[in-house]
Design a protein around this nucleic acid. Structure first.
Length: 254
DNA sequence: ATGGCGGCTCGCAGCCGA
């Protein structure tokens, strides 16, 4: 089972890239973030015609998440239960026995902002919910844009980013709290090249200069992690014209 | 250098992202 996550930064603009990528990579499950589409505008018919089941929860301009799957998606759930949130950031479904949780973690803007406090509260609510969810569904995968670079090696310039949003210690502690639930960072189950990132700023030629961060992740429950055979980042779509600023991340489960 | 780029909106300037 090939699992993937991709922050597409507007599904309307990126649909051609997504369709090409789906045809090439042939994943079984794809989690999308930042679709920026209200549900009636989701390109469900086009994707379904190509054999994709679509579950989605979107809004105008911001946020928006979706799960595409080859097999049927059951037990759909939207948002974090018990956490009131206008923003469409979480969708979960069970596909082939795997509880797939697709998350778009708030950005946080800067460490002294209300958005940062919202981010930390949001992550705490996510973690509390997943603690229960893992009891019900141990075969759980948490995929998405975490907006957290977990370690210095996930940052092109750790000194410049030290203490900044995406890299701050409270955010990294929140990431470790997710790991403490038994979730494993699939990417780090394998030897990886240095300078492996999933996001590069559109500005300053950041991609060409390899100035990125690894902030998109696939975390696997304790039953799934031992079955993971490969994990990687696909930077090819970032090289295209009008790319998303994020690259897709893939984990393959035997 | 708080800019840079890109996507969005009851757009034509300002927001948000990361």
């Amino acid at each position: 089972m090939k699992l993937a996550t991709w922050n597409v930064n507007s599904l309307k603009v990126r649909l051609p890239h997504l369709l090409d990528w789906l045809a090439r990579e042939q994943p079984d499950v794809v989690c999308l973030q930042e679709t920026k589409l209200e549900d009636p505008k989701f390109p469900a018919a086009e994707l379904e015609a190509l054999g994709w089941r679509c579950a989605y929860s979107g809004q105008k301009t911001y946020n928006g998440v979706a799960i595409l799957s080859r097999a049927p998606a059951a037990d759909l759930s939207l948002g974090i239960p018990g956490f009131a949130d206008e923003q469409k950031r979480v969708i979960a479904a069970t596909v082939d026995g795997v509880r797939v949780v697709c998350a778009y973690v708030p950005n946080g803007q800067s460490v002294d902002s209300d958005k940062y406090r919202y981010k930390l509260a949001w992550l705490e609510a996510l973690t509390a919910w997943l603690r229960d969810e893992l009891v019900r569904s141990p075969d759980l995968a948490l995929l998405g844009d975490y907006n957290i670079a977990p370690e210095d090696r996930d940052v092109h310039d750790p000194a410049a980013w030290k203490g900044q949003v995406l890299c701050s210690e409270p955010e990294r502690a929140a990431f470790r709290a997710l790991q403490a639930l038994g979730l494993k960072d699939s990417f780090r189950l394998f030897e990886q090249p240095e300078g492996a990132f999933t996001w590069w700023d559109y500005r300053m030629n950041a991609f060409k200069r390899r100035m990125g961060l690894r902030i998109d992740h696939i975390l696997l429950g304790e039953h799934l992690a031992p079955r993971c055979k490969a994990a990687r980042i696909d930077i090819e779509p970032r090289k295209l014209e009008r790319p998303s600023d994020h690259a897709p991340v893939i984990a393959e489960i035997a």
